[in-house]
Structures are given as structure tokens and as C-alpha cells.
């Protein structure tokens, strides 16, 4: 058993971008997790903001549910702008 809690780490690499998962760290508490993540994942100026979440608290979709969860959106092409054909006179929309 690990002595310290496993935290997942998310880094915002630039202002205006989403936080992105980069890996994990061990820490005794969340404040230490932020510091450990800073030392590990931002040594080369990679980030402007960090999130840490105890790994045990993450709920993930199961790969077995891939089809029921994601396949139904594949044929809903009317959700994409390119589905709609407009006359050229309309110009850029």
C-alpha cells in the first residue's frame, strides 16, 4: 500500500487553453500535491495553472460502454456546420 495518496495532475499550458491530463504524483495532501506536480510537470515552463485530483475520486467511462456512449453521435451530422448547404450568394456564415 502506498503511504501517500495518488493524485492525477492537469496542467493548463497557456492562458486560454483547457487543463490537460499529464500524469500523477504522490502526496500527503492536496497542497503538497500541487507543489510536487509543479516540480515534476512544470520544470520547463510548461504551465500557468495546475489542478490535482485524488485518483480514487475520478469516475471514468468503461471501454465496454464505448459503443452505447459514443457511437450514437457518429451519424448526427446535422450537428456540424458543414451539413447545411447554402447558396454561394450568402457568403461566409
Amino acid at each position: 500500500m502506498s503511504e501517500w495518496t495518488l493524485f492525477e495532475v492537469f496542467v493548463r499550458s497557456k492562458h486560454g487553453l483547457n487543463h490537460k491530463h499529464v500524469g500523477s504524483v504522490h502526496a500527503a495532501d492536496a497542497a503538497m500535491a500541487i507543489e510536487n506536480a509543479r516540480e515534476l510537470y512544470t520544470r520547463r515552463n510548461e504551465g500557468v495553472s495546475l489542478w490535482v485530483v485524488p485518483s480514487a475520486l475520478i469516475t471514468a467511462s468503461s471501454p465496454d460502454e464505448k459503443d452505447p456512449l459514443f457511437a450514437p453521435s457518429e451519424d448526427k451530422i446535422y450537428r456540424h456546420a458543414s451539413f447545411y448547404e447554402l447558396p454561394a450568394e450568402v457568403g461566409h456564415m
Binding site: M1, S2, E3, G23, S24, V25, H26, E39, L40, R43
Partner: peptide, 24 residues
């Protein structure tokens, strides 16, 4: 040397996704 510690930790982190425990 600091990078090497970091690389060890990246790898342990990848290993832990397989359900292995780092301390073990």
C-alpha cells in the same frame, strides 16, 4: 540529475495506471 528523478516519477506514474503500487 533532477530530470532523472522526474523521469523515474513519470515512469512510476505510467506503471501505476496498470494497477501496480509504486511503494510495492
Amino acid at each position: 540529475i533532477q530530470d532523472e528523478a522526474g523521469h523515474g516519477l513519470y515512469l512510476y506514474s505510467a506503471m501505476e495506471t496498470l494497477g501496480a503500487d509504486r511503494d510495492t
